[in-house]
Design a protein around this nucleic acid. Sequence first.
DNA 1: GTTTAAGCGAGACGGTACGTCGGGTCTTCGA
DNA 2: TCGAAGACCCGACGTACCGTCTCGCTTAAAC
Lengths: 212, 212, 212, 212
Amino acid sequence: MTNTRAGRPRDHRIDVAVRDAAVDVLNEVGYAGLTLEAVAARAGTSKPALRRRWRGRQHLVVDALVTTVGATPTPDTGCTHCDLIAGIHSLTEAFTTRIGRRVLPALVADLADDPELAELFLREYFHKRRASTAAALRRGIERGDLDPELDLDLALDMLASTIYYRVLFGHLPVTDELAERVVDVVLGGVATVEWRRCHPRAEAEAGARSGS
Amino acid sequence: MTNTRAGRPRDHRIDVAVRDAAVDVLNEVGYAGLTLEAVAARAGTSKPALRRRWRGRQHLVVDALVTTVGATPTPDTGCTHCDLIAGIHSLTEAFTTRIGRRVLPALVADLADDPELAELFLREYFHKRRASTAAALRRGIERGDLDPELDLDLALDMLASTIYYRVLFGHLPVTDELAERVVDVVLGGVATVEWRRCHPRAEAEAGARSGS
Amino acid sequence: MTNTRAGRPRDHRIDVAVRDAAVDVLNEVGYAGLTLEAVAARAGTSKPALRRRWRGRQHLVVDALVTTVGATPTPDTGCTHCDLIAGIHSLTEAFTTRIGRRVLPALVADLADDPELAELFLREYFHKRRASTAAALRRGIERGDLDPELDLDLALDMLASTIYYRVLFGHLPVTDELAERVVDVVLGGVATVEWRRCHPRAEAEAGARSGS
Amino acid sequence: MTNTRAGRPRDHRIDVAVRDAAVDVLNEVGYAGLTLEAVAARAGTSKPALRRRWRGRQHLVVDALVTTVGATPTPDTGCTHCDLIAGIHSLTEAFTTRIGRRVLPALVADLADDPELAELFLREYFHKRRASTAAALRRGIERGDLDPELDLDLALDMLASTIYYRVLFGHLPVTDELAERVVDVVLGGVATVEWRRCHPRAEAEAGARSGS
DNA sequence: GTTTAAGCGAGACGGTACGTCGGGTCTTCGA
DNA sequence: TCGAAGACCCGACGTACCGTCTCGCTTAAAC
């Protein structure tokens, strides 16, 4: 009733045509080279038709990204260590595509200029991926593998951020075993046993936790 | 000698005027809004003069960044833990400026499209900051605080990346104590003692080290 | 009907603003100093808006010329001699304006490089002026004042060309009585009666005509 | 003595190389498309070398023109009519070259902006051609063919201007017999005998002259 | 014969204007 | 009544060229 609004209905074939065209264009010329004009032309439609559906090229790209680079959920195998590695490893795979490697950084950079876009991106892409890794961490706590008082958000950030970091700056390659090394550090740290003994604050907490 | 080449010498006052103008423009309209035309106009010069000095606005921005957000070196106090916190904390300070918060992400996104720019950025900005933190890590190893076989590059990445991560996605604030929390995790990890006991690979290494 | 076409209609206020601005600029800096950029700026619009309307500055100047130095029609007083003098004299007046004196020659020089421009100029400016003088010549023939077999085009050229010639080369001034002197020569020639008698071809024709 | 000035003497091979290069460039891209840079490059030298010799491209072009389109002097056959036709006809020939047809008009247009250039052009090109035709007219007067009180300058202008006029505007072709037709009109006029009889001023003068 | 400096050739610079691309907006037509 | 599409206006881009300034070198005059 109220769902069907008056006037000419929107042609949904245009939606999919534009999304496909956007992915093509992104793969060919990247994010900086993408123009609404080119996307519209390739989709066989016009600029205003795009603008009516998306606020700008950023919003269009988010839409195309979500459709394309969907999040692989972190598995639940009963092994905390393994689950985390798998979850982070799926992130490295997302960056092997040209879109992941060259489009995502640029898109992310635009988030700072458009809060609405940031909200959309976090909701549609970021948190979907993050949620399943958070679940793995919680299972690790319940299982007694992880410090029950750990800062969940911080751990999630530290697990994922290094991959982004290397992709963004390109100073070091994203190797296949990177996920495992990152998880090892986040779980075990890099300090020696001596250092841990001499820093009761951190170790005391850990001891108190483990002792309880 | 080799300094004197044929042709009219470059007017170095233009260099500084443009750099200053670029910083002003960045602070006013951000990276996406920066145009060579506006910078040239504000600096009282012309586009070709800019183009002769910098390949594009990205290169100009790198130059302006280096001049503006210079790296605060990681201190050497004899305390590994403190030095690292101070070093990472200086990173959060760099992101309190508008330039750091909004310009750097966008600039970094452009690195993927221009290898030459990436090389310039890494050399002039990234590695300068990274080097002094790497030195702190090495001192920590010599001091016996850190695992002598740790992956230095990985540790450096994990120390810095979380700050970038939060700035980029804005899903969580960059609080003042974030630096300390990150260092704690990198040094100590988040796993429980039980977990460490059951994972001899990581713990055995730590034990072997401490036992020697 | 055919007037309403798809797309945003053109803003006609821009047309007049640009034409006015062009005339101003021409009066201030002349033809060589006229730039589309300056005209656009003074008209409060942009270069592409101009370029959409005119192919280049030449076409714009033709348009501005037609609006400004409109052709004064040759009068019809019943006196062939007087009409022609008046018609040619109006030409000298057109060259008293700065636009006529300095712009027209330069514009005319550009005709050779652009046939389309030449066609436009001839249609919109040249032939409008020429037509009314041609009518005066025809009236002179009907009236029996002029040789009915004269080459109309040649006569028109000879009447007008001397004014242009003096303006172009500037070797002699364009005085007020020049129009009369030119008409006198075109009508009467400069040969002596003796010479005419010895050249039956020209004189025989004249005689045959007068004798009929 | 004072002729040989101190310092390095000018390389005269550059003069001729540049003049040749200028003619080539003019033939290829015309006057509007000629740039000092292109001429210098083609001549194998540099812009300052050109600028030291010529004030600007206009002066260079005048120099190249004089060297290329030299004036053919009006002959002296004893026949006024024939001499004039030959003199004017040589003018039409000068306009059959691409340089004459496309370069000269543009150059002439620039005379208005540079009095010094105008003086140079008139002296080096215009008057040289004009002088020999003036001599032919004077011989015609002495011979009794031409009205001894004719305005010599006006007659010269009227003889030559029509050719320029047709070349400039291109509204009519410059045919081979145009020279003859022009001379006919200048000598004989286009009025009928009746008209001449009714206009005693012009005819009385002619009669008085012929009768004396 | 050596010194001195004037003028030249050449290169790069600073700046104006060009022609073009793309973004965002507006208007008309068609469904 | 609203969607589709075309044209429009404008900001900014990257480039070509002009006119100028500076350098190093050549050459002739001066000592």
